[in-house]
Design a binder for these strands. Structure first.
Length: 570
RNA sequence: CGGGAUGUGGCGCAGCUGGUAGCGCACCUGCUUUGGGAGCAGGGGGUCGCACGUUCAAAUCGUGUCAUCCCGACCA
């Protein structure tokens, strides 16, 4: 491909709408452009890279015995009403009507359609097991799309669905897919880990998320380096062996402390010169079944997912200031667990229950209370683990020190069991002639998100630095002066030779200064480049640059250069 | 949906105590240049997001609205 006849609108400066490094690079290197919030055009360069990534995924899916198909992006809403997920998905499901006034939606996922398809076309156990997949668009009307392709409303996903005769078969299909995922992400060069997860809207009884480690990941997981325990921050457990703060706090009754304008644990702790771990933080939440007070140790964060579970509620958010004032009788920042009005539940963390004395808010302005004792000075309805694990906490399995790491979720695999087959009445006949529901699994990879994560993980100061298997071109040939006949002749020959060798090459034949061309090639992420300039002609030697490691190799003749290239590309 | 911020040529920004819309880059023409974002000369391009209001006069002040981005709940 000649650069001059391709379309690569690169940007010299960082676009202001991008925050994440990978998002800036996607835009600067001319891979994508945003049309509207969460909706993107893949430019030619981004598309080339995407296609290579898709092919790599396809290879592993096919190798695992999965069969590719393509399902419609626009789906009749009736199917979603039948499965009941019409309501489950809520506003994320984008609905509209056709000209006959029939209801349709854009596919946020494809369980309904695939189940319907298999139900109508697979009748016997002899055809099982079967795994079908596609690499296709999905649309979820996200509340807040962000970070480029990381969370887009319209996005590309590889989704696979397995159908088995029974639970044991499902286990086998699931294992195969998991292995395929491991191959894919290993080939891409990622540092990743599977962790157990909640099933979310998709449902089912068992699921694991594939997490890639990255400093800028939106999710956090907890890991024990000692025994290999790993779980999402919302699921992770840690030992509650904390036993009480200060000796001086052990008093027969509560003591009032004057804390003028000191609201946060941070401020009060500093003012009183007392460690944050001596405090019990009281937070007031609002839920569909009323107001809830939740207590954790002062240095900890409440994990709202855990709290939801412990309180048995679906919707949970921090109460408004006015409500807090009404319930506690004091401004925000001075809440304590006693004498609260209009509360439906008090949930305390295990650590709070384990220890005997705490400092809490006094439920009056500018005051806190010391020597507050669970059971004596206040009661709780539920004791549970509602705190987020923090680094240094002890592992529940081996008591090793836990670490918390940022990750990006790129894949999610589920054992669905009979969830969809039973709702949609999808049955086959087994060897005894009995009618049975299919045992299903489903397996997703966010393909666009994976592309951006590759860029997030593999880039340098100059620009994108993708592995050759997914970079838009394998090699660039830069002619540094297109007005010089000799340079052009050599460049053209190399370009033609490489093309004849079947190498995916981009030939920078633009009539621009050398600096611009070299910068552009580095920015857009071409792993290898051959530079043809004055020196090439003068010394009659050929120069190959390797982006990874920023190294340079010189060759006496083209044959030895090509030989080296074949090596690098094999 | 709640909280915060920003909308000015293609991109990045200045102008915002009201009074002729500006800079850098990019773009077009010519000449010179070509090993890391070239030089000179000339040139084109903006109803200042949109609407209404205040005013003799609005990019500038007010109200509303839309869009984009950031923080939260959701998720590949």
């Amino acid at each position: 491909m000649r650069y001059s006849s391709f379309f690569i609108p690169s940007l010299k400066e960082d676009p202001k709408e991008a925050v994440l490094k990978s998002h800036k690079l996607l835009l600067r290197a001319g891979y994508v452009r945003q049309l509207s919030g969460g909706i993107y055009t893949y430019l030619p360069l981004g598309l080339k890279s995407l296609r290579k990534l898709e092919d790599l995924i396809r290879q592993e899916m096919n190798a695992a015995g999965a069969i590719e198909l393509s399902m419609p992006f626009v789906q009749p809403l009736d199917l979603w009403k039948e499965s009941g997920r019409d309501e489950d998905y809520g506003k994320e499901l984008l609905r509209f009507k056709d000209r006959q006034d029939r209801d349709f939606c854009l596919a946020p996922t494809y369980e309904e359609v695939i189940t319907d398809l298999v139900k109508k076309n697979v009748k016997s156990y002899k055809e099982l097991p079967m795994t079908l997949y596609q690499i296709h668009l999905k649309f979820r009307d996200e509340i807040r799309p962000r970070f480029g392709l990381m969370r887009a409303k319209e996005f590309i996903m590889k989704d696979a669905y397995s159908f088995d005769a029974d639970e044991a078969g499902l286990g086998e299909s699931y294992k195969k897919m998991k292995r395929a995922y491991e191959n894919i992400f290993r080939r891409l060069g990622f540092d990743f880990k599977f962790i157990k997860a909640e099933a979310g809207e998709i449902g089912g009884n068992y699921s694991e998320e594939l997490m890639v480690f990255s400093e800028y990941g939106e999710d956090k997981i907890v890991i024990c380096e000692n025994c290999g325990y790993a779980a999402s921050i919302d699921e992770a457990d840690s030992v509650s062996d904390y036993r009480g703060p200060l000796e001086s706090c052990r008093q027969p009754k509560m003591t009032r402390l004057f804390t003028p304008d000191k609201k946060s644990v941070e401020e009060v702790g500093e003012y009183l010169k007392i460690d944050k771990t001596c405090f019990a933080k009281t937070m007031i939440y609002e839920s569909e079944s009323g107001f809830i007070a939740a207590l954790v140790r002062g240095d900890r964060e409440i994990n709202e997912r855990k709290l939801k579970k412990a309180a048995g509620v679906k919707n949970l958010f921090l109460a408004k200031e006015a409500d807090v004032e009404r319930i506690t009788g004091a401004p925000c920042g001075f809440a304590g667990p006693f004498g609260l009005n209009g509360l439906s539940l008090i949930v305390i963390d295990e650590e709070i229950n384990n220890s005997e004395y705490w400092i809490t808010g006094a439920n009056e302005k500018n005051a806190h209370m010391a020597n507050v004792r669970p059971g004596r000075d206040f009661t709780s309805d539920t004791v549970a683990n509602i705190r987020s694990v923090q680094a240094g906490d002890k592992c529940v399995r081996c008591s090793g020190a836990l670490t918390v790491k940022n990750v990006i979720e790129l894949g999610h695999i589920f054992k669905l069991g009979e969830k969809y087959s039973s709702i949609l009445n999808a049955k086959f006949l087994d060897e005894k002639g009995e009618s049975k529901f299919f045992a299903m699994g489903c397996y997703g990879i966010g393909v666009g998100r994976t592309l951006q994560t590759l860029i997030e993980v593999f880039s340098d100061e100059e620009g994108i630095n993708l592995p050759i298997s997914v970079s838009p071109f394998a090699i660039a040939v830069a002619s540094l002066n297109v007005n010089d006949g000799k340079i052009t002749a050599v460049s053209e020959k190399i370009y033609e030779d490489l093309t004849a060798m079947g190498i995916d090459v981009i030939y920078d034949d633009r009539n621009l200064s050398a600096g611009i061309k070299l910068k552009d090639i580095d920015l857009i992420g071409i792993p290898l480049k051959i530079v043809v300039g004055n020196r090439t002609i003068k010394d009659n030697k050929y120069e190959l640059n390797i982006k990874k490691g920023n190294s340079k190799e010189i060759f006496e003749d083209l044959e030895s250069l090509y030989k080296r290239l074949r090596e690098l590309l094999s």
